[in-house]
Design a protein around this nucleic acid. Structure first.
Lengths: 250, 250
DNA sequence: TTTATTTTGGTTGATTTTGATTGATTTTGA
DNA sequence: TCAAAATCAATCAAAATCAACCAAAATAAA
């Protein structure tokens, strides 16, 4: 069977069932597991579907389903630890910027008692903030469905109207030489703008993100503090040549 | 079963029953207790539900929304009719402003096929728009918890960056002499600004709002079209002296 | 035809997910 | 209050799935 015919069959099946297992695709196409695996990877890189463990799903499958799935489960405990450390830096009455992303999201329960004002570009953050009775402003902008983040010129523009005591950013990766990285240039712009309007900037990243780069936009943050889990002592030293590091205790 | 399929089933069950026990989710998904436990933890970290001892419940905000929903069921049918009429005015490729509020919210399902771009200041609108795969921009601003609307100078400011083909507003009341009214001055500012940036403005209001004023801020909309249900012919005549009226057929 | 190149399917060990079990914690009911 | 029952987080081994590799088959180029 022609490769493209397989693609068509897979996409038809996916459209019908919303999510498919590798086995389903094997039956329909009579191809081997390896081939289906490759096909799904290809189709994902074309932006036609999203790979998940065991198969694939359509891109926009209601809000119920979560595109942030894998990211959030694996390192949740680390994220929470880091978020606690970050939240402890917040003072009564501070005006904060909270970047969209799962790590900063974990900070919110710990901000409940602090009477802060929060500006965010994360959709799920708004809901969590309101649940905790926190005074909330939203940046404007284009709604990125996949991450639930507001981005674009409108988001950047709207941040210009604020000044923050502290700015908390999530990073997709951090690297001794390159600094912080994030895959989406639009989100990078928002992060950078927020950092520029804050007295102090913190970057939250768990160990899994160390030295991970892939197709990343480098975030040029001069005076940000990295908050992460325990790092080998020598690595901390190397990293702190350029920026300061806060370590979340185990 | 695929992880995401389990997530969907759990969320469906939860939406239906508002709160579920681990056992319920086990039956529906045929998965083990451990797996369900992990799923609930994941879904909570994504802000999709709240874990409680023994199971999970829907978010507090959703509960509130539901009670709001029940409140509004009284006029829901009217709202839907009006929303359909309004949605029919929308053309392929239009750029729309959708005001926060339950009536404009009902328009969204009918916009699905039209390839429009929507700007809104309503939080619940965003979710509905994304569910329907509609390209969405959010105004910035302060998040009013009670109504889920973005308001304030930031909201007004951000609207200045857009131009709309059509602007759809909800009104709290309309009156032959006074025109449209709305109780919150901040929301009124947003409405008025949006109208000023639109080629055509429509006000959606069901009969229950006729001549209702209370402590209302008058909305000075010169060239807006009122969309409402059937009105006595003479009232329409009087009303149309100053503005045009579209009547939703029974 | 023969020779490259691509595609395929099977195999490998690594990783992730799962379900069962543990002892700790919380809730229940007396 | 206490103790039994239920639920919990943490851990572990088995099962499922994964990416990476390689050789055979299919295709394209010479």
């Amino acid at each position: 069977m022609l490769t493209t015919d397989r693609y068509v069959k897979i996409m038809q099946l996916l459209e019908e069932k919303q999510s498919i297992k590798i086995q389903d695709a094997m039956e329909v196409t009579k191809a081997s597991e390896s081939t289906i695996r490759r096909d799904l990877t290809d189709l994902e890189s074309q932006g036609k579907l999203v790979r998940i463990h065991g198969g694939a799903t359509v891109l926009e499958r209601k809000l119920q389903e979560c595109s942030v799935k894998e990211k959030s489960t694996k390192n949740l405990q680390e994220k929470i630890k880091i978020a606690q450390v970050a939240a402890n830096l917040v003072h009564e009455g501070d005006c904060l910027f909270l970047d969209a992303g799962t790590t900063t999201l974990q900070m919110i329960p710990y901000l409940k008692e602090k009477e802060v004002v929060v500006v965010t570009n994360g959709l799920s953050h708004v809901e969590a903030l309101m649940q905790n009775g926190i005074s909330t402003y939203l940046t404007g902008g284009y709604m990125k469905e996949k991450t639930g983040a507001l981005v674009g010129v409108q988001a950047v523009q709207s941040i210009h109207h604020y000044r923050f005591d502290k700015c908390f950013l999530g990073a997709n990766g951090f690297h001794v030489k390159l600094g912080y990285t994030t895959p989406d240039p639009e989100e990078a712009m928002v992060k950078k703008t927020a950092a520029n309007h804050a007295l102090q900037t913190y970057v939250l990243a768990d160990q899994s993100k160390k030295s991970k780069i892939s197709f990343a936009k480098v975030l040029d943050l001069q005076e940000a503090t990295l908050i992460t889990e325990e790092l080998p002592q020598d690595e901390i030293k190397r990293f702190t040549k350029e920026t300061s590091v806060k370590v979340a205790e185990q």
